[in-house]
Design a binder for these strands. Sequence first.
DNA 1: CGGGTTAGCATTGTCGACAATCTACCTATT
DNA 2: AATAGGTAGATTGTCGACAATGCTAACCCG
Lengths: 215, 215
Amino acid sequence: MTSYIEPLAQESTPSIIADKLRKAIGHGELKPGTQLGEADLARKLGVSRGPLREGMQRLTQEGLLVAIRNRGLFVVDMTADDVQDMYLAREAIERAAARKIMLGDHKAAGEQLLAIVHDMAAAEGDPAAVGEIDIAFHERLVELAGSPRLSRMHRTYITETRMCIHALEETYTTSEVRVGEHQRLAEAILNGDGLHADDLLVAHMDDAIARLTSR
Amino acid sequence: MTSYIEPLAQESTPSIIADKLRKAIGHGELKPGTQLGEADLARKLGVSRGPLREGMQRLTQEGLLVAIRNRGLFVVDMTADDVQDMYLAREAIERAAARKIMLGDHKAAGEQLLAIVHDMAAAEGDPAAVGEIDIAFHERLVELAGSPRLSRMHRTYITETRMCIHALEETYTTSEVRVGEHQRLAEAILNGDGLHADDLLVAHMDDAIARLTSR
DNA sequence: CGGGTTAGCATTGTCGACAATCTACCTATT
DNA sequence: AATAGGTAGATTGTCGACAATGCTAACCCG
């Protein structure tokens, strides 16, 4: 379907590095508190320290890394307050996304989201898979709003969410409940019921906070 | 009031550079579409290209600069769609901020905001001053929510807002209307009327979009 | 034995130089 | 005259080396 002739956007090296590090952080390969030694990392990635530092600056800007002058960069260690704040931010973004979807083709959007819920139900029993699909659901939700800014902000918090999930995988509740929550949300969007969707989203986020911070 | 003994946070050079560029972009010193030549800028700022590039990476991440490989970095030229998207993002953030303020000490917050409105009324007649105070109002609103993430995201969009204001300063409507809008919002927050504040905020943003994109 | 000082080490911060790439202009050919 | 090709200039991308800073630990002195 896609044409063979397209702009062929060559990504810049810092951009690739930033993506790699984001993935590594999200997947628990770089644990919170870890120091990222520049010389070491540069060797492993096969680049020089210049581009590497540029890539890391981006993650610092996103709040995934914290810089201490003349000490180095460290993976953030999230406190309970951070988790709460992160979900506050996600809630803000996803509510806005849902609101915008309502103004557009909410039926098509609802169908796409229901398809993801379907996958989630199929994956039940495999907590890791359900977690990934859960994230995919929210990513798609924001993507469907068609807002570059909402998407860009959301990407950051998705990484932070992954961090949390990996940090306490066993605590993560079994999936029956979550499939239901997502399904109701997708249906509300499909039906164009904006107020209901909004309420569900808020409740969903509160649930998540409770799950992650209670312990 | 502040103690003489404080953490004395020495900001890193890239951080200072990023701030300087942000200000320059916001205040119209760097017009949309301008190319930022590295060698030239480095000379002007008195630093080498390394730290400069790191600072610019941050602005690229924020969306204030766009990078074209092997061509350089340019100040974004905002389209009407961009303006709309920016206000969508700001609306999402500020609504969340207002909502969180309601859960805390909304009286104190309302009073602080009313003080700013008072300043705005006093500055009536000077469009530039009113514009700055307008921005200060929204900055404070988000700051009062006490959310690091909301504040960080908001800072980016404040710069974009400044860009727009500077780009079309004369088009900016006279201030009577805006003072009223802000005052009602501050009062709603003072009174703890969350729903009303939310409605006012949405209307206020829609107004702003209309002002900036109509033309 | 404890506190303070100092030397050494490791890591980050900064810089200058070289290589790769793109744009613009000029020339030659059809 | 118009277009294809080539060349020169400038700019970015990348790298390696040096300087500055902070931590660690051994050592000395009270």
